[in-house]
């Protein structure tokens, strides 16, 4: 059973790398933001995995339970989720603005247009 103890981390690494692949390989800006979100969620899962204690329960105090999971990663991730959505909204607003200025959200087309302008 010890060997499976690292399974969560491996899936987290897989998700992280999927997000990184989307961000680097996809030319489309909306797809890049989706990739960024996938990456972000994998970090959340990493933190929550660290906070889990076997046979512990959620850190909401009740009588007769003495083993709780660690509440600190939960607090950090709670903040991170909200900030993450705020940055996603800002990124998507930038995409909309770029589209209305250039007429395209394809990275290579944008670079071509910039090169033609200068």
């Amino acid at each position: 059973m010890q060997a499976f103890g690292l399974f969560n981390y491996w899936v987290v690494v897989l998700l992280m790398m999927t997000g990184l692949y989307i961000v680097t390989a996809s030319p489309n800006l909306i797809k890049k933001i989706i990739g960024l979100n996938i990456f972000q969620t994998s970090v959340f899962i990493l933190y929550i995995t660290i906070g889990k204690v076997s046979f512990g329960t959620a850190p909401i105090l009740v009588d007769g339970v003495s083993r709780y999971s660690n509440p600190l990663p939960h607090v950090l991730i709670l903040t991170a989720i909200v900030v993450g959505v705020a940055t996603t909204a800002l990124g998507l607003a930038l995409v909309v603005r770029i589209h209305s200025a250039y007429g395209s959200i394809n990275e290579s087309e944008l670079q071509n247009e910039d090169a033609a302008d200068s």
Partner: peptide, 26 residues
Amino acid sequence: VFVVLDAVDVAFTEAAVGAGIATILM
């Protein structure tokens, strides 16, 4: 996954903010 890993508050936020707002923004 957050619910299973005991992070109920995180799951709550992710439900309202991640699944709801982020998808609709996209």
